Amino acid sequence: MKKYFLLLILMPFLFASCVDENESLQTSCNYTDFKYYNGSEDYLGELSGNYVLLACDTTYTDDEIQNFISTLSDFDQDYNYTIYAQPSYKYKEIPLKLNSSKSCEEITTIISAIQERSLVSYVHYTIQSDNCQNLIWEPIGNRCVNSYSSLFYVKVMDETDLTALKRVIAETNTELVKQNEFMEKWFTLRATKHSKGDALKMANHFFETGLFESSEPDITKYPVE
């Protein structure tokens, strides 16, 4: 009888311990839904639960990338994806469809796992969009998602003093790509999977330091259907 009462007393604590352990194992949502524009938060849109943006270095062939994607069980293997390559960009980008709609926590877990693979340069969240037109209002597909590249753009206070820029680059493990030839206060930076966050998070972080006039991610649009 004493053992029975002792068990009743201990059960709530044992249950609470199990709950805490399960919660600690669950990956939290890491999606950022805003950027800064004119000093204020600018809402980017709702997370897409059906697509992510995968990127690989241009040194990999399309065949190598396709073979790699075929091993990923979280993705729809019947989906007819496109490998996008731009002449001046370091990475090939591929919007991929998940095998079912996922929660933000599930997508965060998938991104974290895939980015461990050496062939993968980054995996980014995608954002729902009702607009499927290019910059000159031409339709580019039946359905599009927005995402962001590895680049972001920082406007310094004084282009002759880059002390703050170099310091924050070192702190965040981001990379300086180039200075704008015509707007000398603007610099292009790159976030990698080894940085303190992806390019969207880093763009926001640089602005939040208060050391720079502006910081913008490179928002992109992709047709997925």
Rank of each mutant, 00 (worst) to 15 (best):
R117S: 09
F34V: 00
C56V: 13
V19Y: 03
T192D: 01
L176Y: 09
Y51D: 00
A55R: 12
I219R: 07
Y36N: 01
L165T: 04
L162A: 10
Y89C: 00
L47F: 06
P139D: 12
V224Y: 01
S101R: 14
T59F: 09
Y81Q: 03
C144K: 02
M157E: 15
F5H: 12
S214V: 01
P87D: 14
K166Y: 09
G45N: 05
D78R: 02
N146H: 12
G210D: 07
L162P: 01
T163A: 08
R143V: 05
L200D: 02
W137S: 15
K166E: 11
D63V: 05
M11F: 15
Y125Q: 01
F212K: 00
D218F: 08
P95E: 07
V168D: 10
E105R: 05
Y91G: 00
S17H: 10
A170L: 12
D161A: 10
L14I: 15
L14C: 14
Y31A: 08
E64R: 00
D74N: 15
E41Y: 08
N67I: 06
Y81P: 04
E175N: 08
Y60K: 11
Y81K: 05
Y51P: 00
V168K: 10
I136N: 14
C29T: 08
S101V: 09
T58L: 03
K221L: 15
L98A: 13
Y43S: 10
L200Y: 00
F206D: 07
L72T: 04
D20M: 11
F13R: 12
L25G: 11
L53I: 03
L176P: 00
H194L: 12
M157P: 10
S214P: 00
S147I: 01
H205W: 07
T174I: 07
D218W: 08
M11A: 14
P12I: 08
A55Q: 08
M202W: 00
V177Q: 11
D57L: 13
S101G: 04
L6V: 07
P12H: 11
L53C: 02
K35F: 02
K90G: 00
E171V: 11
I219M: 14
S73H: 07
L200Q: 03
L14N: 09
S24R: 06
D33E: 13
K92I: 07
L6Y: 07
L98I: 06
F152Y: 12
A199E: 02
D78E: 13
E184Q: 09
F34L: 01
E213S: 14
A85N: 11
G45S: 05
L98E: 03
I65Q: 01
L25A: 14
F212Y: 00
T61N: 03
S28L: 15
E184V: 04
L151I: 06
T108I: 00
V168L: 11
I9R: 06
Y148I: 03
C56Q: 03
E225L: 13
F182T: 08
D74F: 12
N142K: 10
K201N: 10
I110C: 02
Y81R: 04
I83R: 07
D198N: 11
N30K: 15
T209V: 03
F152W: 06
L162M: 11
K166W: 05
Y153K: 12
N30E: 15
K193Y: 01
N22K: 07
N30F: 15
L72E: 12
E41P: 13
L10N: 09
L135D: 10
N173T: 04
C132H: 03
T174K: 06
G210W: 01
L53P: 03
L200P: 01
L211Y: 07
S112W: 02
N180R: 13
Y37A: 09
N142P: 08
